[in-house]
Protein backbone atom coordinates (compact mmCIF):
# COMPACT_ATOMS: atom_id res chain seq x y z
CA UNK A 1 0.00 0.00 0.00
CA UNK A 2 1.30 3.42 -0.93
CA UNK A 3 0.34 5.81 1.80
CA UNK A 4 1.32 9.41 2.41
CA UNK A 5 1.60 11.04 5.84
CA UNK A 6 1.47 14.83 5.71
CA UNK A 7 3.92 16.48 8.09
CA UNK A 8 3.16 19.99 9.38
CA UNK A 9 5.38 22.07 11.66
CA UNK A 10 4.22 20.86 15.09
CA UNK A 11 2.94 17.44 13.98
CA UNK A 12 4.00 14.94 16.65
CA UNK A 13 2.19 11.69 15.79
CA UNK A 14 3.44 11.51 12.20
CA UNK A 15 6.06 8.90 13.04
CA UNK A 16 3.67 6.93 15.25
CA UNK A 17 1.18 6.58 12.43
CA UNK A 18 3.99 5.74 9.99
CA UNK A 19 4.99 2.85 12.29
CA UNK A 20 1.35 1.69 12.48
CA UNK A 21 0.95 1.81 8.68
CA UNK A 22 4.20 -0.06 8.10
CA UNK A 23 3.29 -2.70 10.72
CA UNK A 24 0.04 -3.45 8.89
CA UNK A 25 1.11 -3.07 5.28
CA UNK A 26 4.82 -3.88 5.29
CA UNK A 27 5.43 -0.69 3.33
CA UNK A 28 6.87 2.48 4.76
CA UNK A 29 4.64 5.49 4.00
CA UNK A 30 5.96 8.57 2.23
CA UNK A 31 6.33 11.55 4.57
CA UNK A 32 5.16 14.68 2.73
CA UNK A 33 6.10 18.16 3.93
CA UNK A 34 3.23 20.66 4.24
CA UNK A 35 4.98 23.18 2.01
CA UNK A 36 4.96 20.83 -0.98
CA UNK A 37 2.19 21.39 -3.46
CA UNK A 38 1.97 17.96 -5.10
CA UNK A 39 1.20 14.50 -3.79
CA UNK A 40 2.60 11.31 -5.31
CA UNK A 41 0.12 8.65 -6.45
CA UNK A 42 -1.11 7.00 -3.25
CA UNK A 43 -3.86 4.79 -1.85
CA UNK A 44 -4.25 6.58 1.47
CA UNK A 45 -3.49 10.02 2.90
CA UNK A 46 -3.07 10.50 6.65
CA UNK A 47 -3.18 13.83 8.47
CA UNK A 48 -1.45 13.03 11.77
CA UNK A 49 -1.95 14.30 15.31
CA UNK A 50 0.04 17.06 16.92
CA UNK A 51 -0.13 20.80 17.35
CA UNK A 52 0.42 22.11 13.84
CA UNK A 53 1.59 25.74 13.90
CA UNK A 54 1.23 25.75 17.69
CA UNK A 55 -2.59 25.76 17.40
CA UNK A 56 -2.33 29.47 16.55
CA UNK A 57 -5.67 31.19 15.80
CA UNK A 58 -7.60 27.87 16.04
CA UNK A 59 -6.41 24.26 16.10
CA UNK A 60 -5.75 23.21 12.51
CA UNK A 61 -6.57 26.64 11.03
CA UNK A 62 -3.10 27.36 9.63
CA UNK A 63 -2.42 23.80 8.51
CA UNK A 64 -5.70 23.68 6.58
CA UNK A 65 -4.41 26.52 4.39
CA UNK A 66 -0.95 24.97 3.78
CA UNK A 67 0.09 24.51 0.13
CA UNK A 68 -0.21 20.69 0.28
CA UNK A 69 -3.85 20.90 1.39
CA UNK A 70 -5.04 21.87 -2.09
CA UNK A 71 -3.71 18.55 -3.34
CA UNK A 72 -5.20 16.70 -0.35
CA UNK A 73 -8.64 18.26 -0.96
CA UNK A 74 -8.46 17.42 -4.68
CA UNK A 75 -7.50 13.77 -3.96
CA UNK A 76 -10.19 13.45 -1.28
CA UNK A 77 -12.82 14.76 -3.70
CA UNK A 78 -11.58 12.26 -6.30
CA UNK A 79 -12.15 9.42 -3.82
CA UNK A 80 -8.74 8.74 -2.23
CA UNK A 81 -9.21 7.63 1.40
CA UNK A 82 -8.12 10.33 3.85
CA UNK A 83 -7.70 9.66 7.59
CA UNK A 84 -7.36 12.57 10.03
CA UNK A 85 -6.36 11.72 13.59
CA UNK A 86 -6.71 14.28 16.39
CA UNK A 87 -5.10 17.43 14.95
CA UNK A 88 -5.72 15.78 11.56
CA UNK A 89 -9.48 15.78 12.34
CA UNK A 90 -9.27 19.46 13.30
CA UNK A 91 -7.46 20.19 10.02
CA UNK A 92 -10.12 18.29 8.02
CA UNK A 93 -12.92 20.40 9.51
CA UNK A 94 -10.96 23.62 8.97
CA UNK A 95 -10.31 22.59 5.36
CA UNK A 96 -14.03 21.96 4.80
CA UNK A 97 -13.61 18.23 4.08
CA UNK A 98 -15.67 17.39 7.16
CA UNK A 99 -18.53 19.44 8.67
CA UNK A 100 -18.60 21.04 12.11
CA UNK A 101 -15.79 22.26 14.36
CA UNK A 102 -13.70 21.06 17.29
CA UNK A 103 -13.88 23.46 20.18
CA UNK A 104 -12.14 23.77 23.53
CA UNK A 105 -12.93 20.79 25.80
CA UNK A 106 -15.99 21.56 27.92
CA UNK A 107 -13.98 20.99 31.13
CA UNK A 108 -11.23 23.31 29.79
CA UNK A 109 -8.54 20.73 30.59
CA UNK A 110 -6.15 18.96 28.27
CA UNK A 111 -7.11 15.29 28.51
CA UNK A 112 -4.63 12.48 27.91
CA UNK A 113 -6.02 9.05 28.78
CA UNK A 114 -7.60 5.95 27.33
CA UNK A 115 -11.31 6.14 26.56
CA UNK A 116 -13.85 3.64 25.30
CA UNK A 117 -15.36 4.10 21.87
CA UNK A 118 -18.34 2.35 20.34
CA UNK A 119 -18.05 1.55 16.64
CA UNK A 120 -21.24 3.10 15.28
CA UNK A 121 -20.70 2.25 11.64
CA UNK A 122 -18.50 -0.68 10.67
CA UNK A 123 -19.45 -0.54 6.99
CA UNK A 124 -16.65 1.88 6.16
CA UNK A 125 -13.18 1.56 4.63
CA UNK A 126 -11.71 2.42 8.01
CA UNK A 127 -13.87 0.48 10.47
CA UNK A 128 -14.75 -2.77 8.72
CA UNK A 129 -12.19 -4.62 10.86
CA UNK A 130 -14.45 -4.02 13.84
CA UNK A 131 -17.77 -5.64 14.70
CA UNK A 132 -21.04 -3.70 14.77
CA UNK A 133 -21.27 -1.81 18.06
CA UNK A 134 -17.89 -3.16 19.18
CA UNK A 135 -16.37 -1.31 22.13
CA UNK A 136 -12.67 -0.49 21.76
CA UNK A 137 -10.17 1.19 24.08
CA UNK A 138 -8.18 3.96 22.39
CA UNK A 139 -6.31 6.92 23.90
CA UNK A 140 -7.26 10.56 23.49
CA UNK A 141 -4.80 13.41 23.92
CA UNK A 142 -6.28 16.82 23.18
CA UNK A 143 -7.40 20.21 24.42
CA UNK A 144 -9.80 20.97 21.56
CA UNK A 145 -11.89 17.88 20.90
CA UNK A 146 -15.37 19.14 21.71
CA UNK A 147 -17.28 18.38 18.51
CA UNK A 148 -19.86 20.97 17.51
CA UNK A 149 -22.14 21.23 14.49
CA UNK A 150 -25.45 23.02 13.97
CA UNK A 151 -28.52 20.86 14.49
CA UNK A 152 -29.25 20.43 10.76
CA UNK A 153 -25.71 19.14 10.17
CA UNK A 154 -25.88 16.91 13.22
CA UNK A 155 -29.17 15.38 12.08
CA UNK A 156 -27.73 14.77 8.63
CA UNK A 157 -24.70 13.00 10.13
CA UNK A 158 -26.88 10.87 12.38
CA UNK A 159 -29.46 10.01 9.72
CA UNK A 160 -26.91 8.89 7.16
CA UNK A 161 -24.65 6.76 9.36
CA UNK A 162 -21.78 9.21 9.24
CA UNK A 163 -20.96 8.98 12.94
CA UNK A 164 -18.19 6.37 12.95
CA UNK A 165 -17.29 6.39 16.67
CA UNK A 166 -18.91 7.61 19.86
CA UNK A 167 -17.40 7.96 23.35
CA UNK A 168 -18.99 5.34 25.60
CA UNK A 169 -18.68 3.55 28.92
CA UNK A 170 -16.79 0.23 29.16
CA UNK A 171 -20.05 -1.63 28.54
CA UNK A 172 -20.87 0.44 25.44
CA UNK A 173 -23.42 2.70 27.10
CA UNK A 174 -23.51 6.21 25.61
CA UNK A 175 -24.03 8.81 28.33
CA UNK A 176 -22.73 12.14 29.62
CA UNK A 177 -20.34 10.44 32.08
CA UNK A 178 -18.56 8.72 29.19
CA UNK A 179 -18.18 11.98 27.27
CA UNK A 180 -14.69 13.32 28.02
CA UNK A 181 -14.88 16.67 26.23
CA UNK A 182 -18.48 17.79 25.74
CA UNK A 183 -18.81 16.61 22.13
CA UNK A 184 -22.39 16.76 20.84
CA UNK A 185 -24.00 13.29 20.85
CA UNK A 186 -20.69 11.91 22.27
CA UNK A 187 -19.23 12.09 18.75
CA UNK A 188 -15.59 10.96 18.53
CA UNK A 189 -15.28 10.46 14.76
CA UNK A 190 -17.24 11.27 11.59
CA UNK A 191 -17.20 10.47 7.89
CA UNK A 192 -17.71 12.67 4.86
CA UNK A 193 -20.72 12.17 2.59
CA UNK A 194 -18.94 9.71 0.31
CA UNK A 195 -17.35 7.73 3.15
CA UNK A 196 -13.73 8.13 2.01
CA UNK A 197 -12.74 10.72 4.62
CA UNK A 198 -12.69 9.88 8.35
CA UNK A 199 -11.77 12.31 11.11
CA UNK A 200 -11.48 11.18 14.72
CA UNK A 201 -10.05 12.69 17.90
CA UNK A 202 -8.78 9.41 19.46
CA UNK A 203 -5.40 7.94 18.47
CA UNK A 204 -5.69 4.36 17.11
CA UNK A 205 -2.04 4.54 16.00
CA UNK A 206 -0.96 4.61 19.65
CA UNK A 207 -2.39 1.18 20.48
CA UNK A 208 -1.34 -1.26 17.78
CA UNK A 209 0.47 -3.92 19.83
CA UNK A 210 0.47 -5.40 23.31
CA UNK A 211 3.88 -3.85 23.97
CA UNK A 212 2.19 -0.44 23.68
CA UNK A 213 -0.52 -1.39 26.18
CA UNK A 214 -3.15 -2.60 23.76
CA UNK A 215 -3.94 -3.38 20.15
CA UNK A 216 -7.47 -2.08 19.61
CA UNK A 217 -6.21 0.47 17.08
CA UNK A 218 -4.58 -2.11 14.86
CA UNK A 219 -7.77 -3.24 13.07
CA UNK A 220 -8.14 0.15 11.40
CA UNK A 221 -4.73 -0.01 9.74
CA UNK A 222 -5.15 -3.70 8.85
CA UNK A 223 -8.51 -2.90 7.21
CA UNK A 224 -7.05 -0.06 5.15
CA UNK A 225 -4.17 -2.26 4.02
CA UNK A 226 -6.45 -5.17 3.09
CA UNK A 227 -8.67 -2.87 1.09
CA UNK A 228 -5.85 -1.79 -1.14
CA UNK A 229 -4.52 -5.32 -1.58
CA UNK A 230 -7.99 -6.44 -2.76
CA UNK A 231 -8.38 -3.53 -5.15
Amino acid sequence: MNSCVIVFPGSNCDRDVAVALEASSGTRPRMIWHGDSELPACDLIVLPGGFSHGDYLRSGAMAARAPIMRAVVAKAKAGTPVLGLCNGFQILTEAGLLPGALMRNAGLKFICRDVFLRVENNYTLFTRGYGPGQVVRIPISHHDGNYFADSATLNRLEDTGRVAFRYCAADGLINADANPNGSLNNIAGILNETGNVLGMMPHPERLISHELGGSDGRAMFDALTALVQCA
Binding site: L57, R58, A61, P99, F148
Partner: peptide
Protein backbone atom coordinates in the same frame (compact mmCIF):
# COMPACT_ATOMS: atom_id res chain seq x y z
CA UNK B 1 -14.32 34.18 5.82
CA UNK B 2 -11.29 32.23 4.62
CA UNK B 3 -9.05 32.24 7.68
CA UNK B 4 -9.56 34.66 10.56
CA UNK B 5 -12.97 33.34 11.65
CA UNK B 6 -14.45 29.85 11.51
CA UNK B 7 -17.95 30.71 10.38
CA UNK B 8 -19.27 27.36 11.60
CA UNK B 9 -18.95 28.65 15.16
Amino acid sequence: AQLLANTVI
